[in-house]
Structures are given as C-alpha cells and as structure tokens.
Design a protein around this nucleic acid. Structure first.
Length: 502
RNA sequence: GGCGGCGUGGCCAAGUGGUAAGGCAAAGGUCUGCAAAACCUUGAUCACCGGUUCAAAUCCGGUCGCCGCCUCCA
C-alpha cells in the first residue's frame, strides 16, 4: 500500500515518494527556548513523532532534524527580566524542553542543531543572497527582497498584491516592500552579537531554519513540518531564501502542517494568555492520555485540550489498559511448544488480527489518519474482550496462544502510534529474565514486592473462601491505596500496579 | 478587506457518491458476596434551502452559524 499525505504547497493529498528510495529526511521547526512549552507546541511534536514512527514502521529509514532557536528577541527580553544571560535562559529551557519531550515519549531527533551554532552557514547564505540581488543592506540590517523572488507567496497561497492590500502593520520605511523581512539585524549594545560584513549583529528568525535544514538535509529534502501558524510568514520565507540562494526548486518536497490547539473553543495562544504548559498537564494526566487525545483527532484539524477532553481521553486510555491487563493475566503461562489445535472460531479470530493490521495501515496510509487508526484499535479491543469473555465459560487448549497473538497485535499497533512506548534504554533489560507474573506491568514492580502481593492475595483468597468478606475487602482497599488494583474474576484474582490515586 | 477551514447521535470524532467507524457519557440487562472490569441491548437521515445523479453526509449553487491565517506564536 502506498502512503498519501497532504501537501500544504499543493493543498491536496499526494502520493509520498521520498527523494531517495527507502529514506526519509525530515525537518521540524523546533522551539524558541525562552519558556516551558505549552500543549500547542506539544501537539506539534506529538504529531511529527507519530508521523516519524509510522514512517519507520513502513520500513523507511528516517532522519529527523529539529532545531533549537536559541537567539531571539524573546530570549533576550527574558534574560533581561531575570538578570541572566540569553545563553543561560536558552540552555535552561532547552533542557526543560528535552525533559518534556521525554515525558511525552517523543523520540529525540537525530540531530538538534542550535541557531547560535549555525551562524557561519547563515552568513554565507546571506552574503550570497546579497550578491545575487535578492537581499539588500540598510544600516547594518539585511533584508530579503520578496519582489526579487518570483514564487513568493506560493506556499501560503497569496500574492504580493494581496499582501500589500491587506497590510495592517506600520511599515518600516527603509524596506523596499512591506513584506521584505530581516535576514540579519544589527544588534544593540548588550545583545548577543556576531561579526558580519555589515557590522555586529544577529540573525533574523527565518534564515536559521534554511541554514540548518540545508546543512543537514540539503535542497529538496522530503518533509518539512510545523504548526499551521508557521506557513506564513516563516515557511514562506524559508522557501524564498532557500530557493533564491540555491537557484534550485523545490526546497522541500512535502510541507506538512498540524492544526491548532484550542482551550474551550478558543485558540490557545500567548497573546490570549490561555496557555497550558505541557509539564502542568503531565502532572494531572498520564502522557499516554495526552497522546491518545491528540490521536483521536486528525492532525490537521483543530483540537480541544480542555479538562473535559483530557478526562475523556484518560478513560479511553483505561479501556486500552484494561484490555492489556486482562490479556496479560489470562496469558499468564508461556504458550506450549507445540501449537494445539484451534477451534474454528479461534482460527477466524487469529485471521482477523491480520485484518486489523491491514485496516490500521490503510488508515495511516491515508494522510496519517490516526483517528481512524484508533477506531481500528478499539475495534480490536472489543474483539479481544469478547474472546476473553467467552473463555470464562469454556476455555480451549489454544486460548493462551490466541490471546497472546492478539495481545502482540494490539501492542504493536499501539506502539506505532507511540502509546505504551517501552521504557527507554536499559530499564527493560533487567526484567527480561524474570518469569512473567500475572498482572505485573513493565517497570512498575520489583520481585520482592510482587511476591508479597501474591502472598497477600493468597490470604485474601482464603478469607473469601471462608466468607470473611470484611477482611477480603480490607486487603483489596488497602492494596488499592498503595497503587495496586485487584479484580476478582470467576477463576481467581488478577492484579497490577496502577499507581496511587490522587 | 484578502485567503482558508469547519458545521455528523448528549459531548468528542472518523467517513468525501451507494442507506453512517470509534471514544466518552446515559439507560436496561448478564456476570458477581461486594467492588472493578468486561459483554449484550438501546439512540443520528449528517446546519438549512435548491440542484446534479438510478443513488449524496459525501458533487454543484445559495443561506445561516462558528473558527483560523494575513503580526511573535506549534
């Protein structure tokens, strides 16, 4: 099956064909590190994380570059407010960003260049643009001349005339055209500054992404992503600079832009002051709930991250977790070496697992339709639950094997979307040697504690047998307080660490 | 003013020509010492009007409503 994705440039879905077969080069505009990131930013990185994971799943080798904008007015202002250097501010929030991404289970980029470490490349580009007549110098500033670039406006779909007509901002008199933008700004005393042919200064915002993407990926790389608010002017300007500089086109093969985050019907934005930080949300909701919420809406549509929506997503996530929990405790012992015969129903069920995978891929192949893909996953959950329900009445010899296959399928599909991501390096290894314990989840327990829980549950089982329900309920509720959930099934108890309730 | 998007069951959300996925919530039922989970059952003609078609939520035209971009912003 081939993958189609929506290209902002053509405003339609196109078949995805990377520049180099089997390899995808992508660049996503990274954060300006002057504050903790909010969930609007978070959504963008989540979206591209999923795209990246899916491309990998499809067998592509993906090379992912995401920059840090570490020189900028906002950083300078922030530094001034806090009596720190811009670099201190930038490094602090860069680290915070990495922490937030890790908490969201967003895979780290292959390369994350910093603007301040790419100055020579930017200067080279700017110099060339001046030489080619695409840029001009005024009082130590360098501006890109939009009129010198024929295709200006092609990404955002507007002409220069329209932009001039709709001009709302007071125009800098020194600019030849209102839309001309700064490639280089002369710096005032106390600001970060680098030497340049036009005097001490610092780069404009747009040039860094051109310089960094060209440095690491070259002209004509595959996917350039970001939020829809970057389409104009940021990405429009990147195209102009890069294509004018290289004399080649296109700069990027596919432009991918995600929709905004709303908080109760309103766009979340700094100017409206309704921002919610990723780290604050993660204090209240598991990362997978946040991710699931993002996945349940197509990436190009607006999405509401209000408390009600998060609450719903959390419960939906629990449905997934419950299913895995039930499967885990059902499978309990390892499957037999020789596969026992499956019933007709089990043969069909096993076959259907491949069907679910196929439908999942179909959804994802269609412009990363994660909402549809999640629908497929939930349908699979229902199938598996129904099967487990049947097993309460008549268990068949092959059932652990079938359940295990189902579990593998479910986990596999979830992980493509970044849900139930395995713990980062190392942590999983030490548990690998252990006997699987019913109900235990990866990384949540250690053997001694597990043994004690099992012991308590044996005591509880005895109490129940003797109809000492007060004792049984006491043990269950005390365990719950300690973050251990116990369910009674027809054939016994099952348990898992679920974490303490707030 | 220019450009673009959206309006699907109580809420969220897929579906873009053949009589509507999924999640959350609700009601009834099954199971059960209780609880939890799960399973079964129940509900939408897709903003409105007109048109094209054998057939439209899905295409075309119009109306109403909502939103975004055009300025730093993911």
């Amino acid at each position: 099956m081939s993958l189609v994705l929506h290209n902002t440039m053509t405003r339609r879905k196109e078949e995805f064909r990377p520049r180099e077969e089997g390899r995808v080069l992508m660049y996503v505009c990274g954060p300006t590190v002057y504050n903790y990131i909010h969930v609007g930013n978070g959504r963008a990185y989540l979206v591209f994380d999923v795209i990246r994971r899916y491309l990998r799943y499809k067998g592509y080798e993906v090379f992912y570059v995401q920059n840090f904008t570490d020189v900028d007015d906002k950083i300078i202002n922030r530094a001034r407010e806090e009596g720190k250097t811009p670099q201190e501010i930038a490094r602090f929030y860069e680290r915070a960003f990495r922490e937030d991404m890790r908490a969201l289970n967003v895979l780290p980029p292959d390369v994350s260049p910093r603007a301040t470490e790419t100055i020579p490349q930017m200067l080279e580009m700017i110099k060339a643009l001046v030489e080619k007549g695409h840029a001009y110098v005024v009082d130590g500033d360098v501006y890109f001349s939009v009129e010198s670039f024929e295709g200006y406006g092609k990404l955002s779909g507007r002409s220069l005339e329209e932009m001039r007509a709709g001009e709302r901002v007071e125009v800098d008199e020194r600019k030849r055209h209102p839309m001309d933008f700064a490639l280089w700004k002369s710096s005032k005393p106390g600001e970060p500054a680098w030497e340049s042919p036009w005097g001490m200064g610092r780069p404009g915002w747009h040039i860094e992404c051109s310089a960094m993407s060209l440095q690491h990926l070259g002209m004509g790389f595959d996917i350039h992503g970001g939020g829809q608010d970057l389409i104009f002017p940021h990405h429009e300007n990147e195209i102009a600079q890069s294509e004018a500089y290289s004399g080649e086109s296109p700069f990027v093969r596919y432009w991918v832009h995600n929709g905004f985050v709303n908080i109760r019907e309103e766009k979340m934005s700094k100017s409206l002051g309704n921002i919610i930080l990723v780290r604050d949300i993660l204090k209240q909701y598991p990362a997978d709930a946040v991710r699931l919420l993002a996945l349940q809406t197509h990436y190009r549509s607006p999405i509401d991250f209000g408390p009600e929506a998060l609450e719903e997503a959390k419960r939906a996530l629990e449905r997934l977790e419950n299913c895995l929990f039930a499967l885990d405790s059902f499978i309990a012992k390892p499957p037999p070496r020789v596969a026992p015969a499956r019933t007709q129903r089990e043969v069909e069920l096993s076959d259907s697992f491949f069907d679910f995978e196929r439908r999942f891929e179909e959804a994802m192949d269609d412009d990363f339709n994660t909402a549809r893909a999640m629908g497929v996953i939930f349908e699979l959950v229902k199938e598996l639950n129904t099967y487990l329900d049947e097993q309460q009445h008549f268990q068949t010899p092959a059932s652990p094997m079938v359940a295990s296959h189902g579990r593998d399928t479910l986990i596999k599909l979830c992980r493509v979307l970044g849900l139930f991501a395995p713990p980062p390096e190392g942590e999983e290894v030490e548990r690998a040697a252990e006997e699987p314990v019913a109900g235990a989840e990866d990384g949540d327990a250690f053997p001694a504690a597990e043994g004690l829980v099992e012991l308590l549950l044996e005591v509880r089982a005895m109490a129940r047998e003797r109809k000492q329900f007060e004792t049984a309920d006491f043990i269950r509720s005390r365990l719950r307080e300690m973050g251990i959930r116990v369910d009674d099934l027809r054939e016994g108890q099952r348990w898992k660490f679920v974490g303490r309730e707030e």
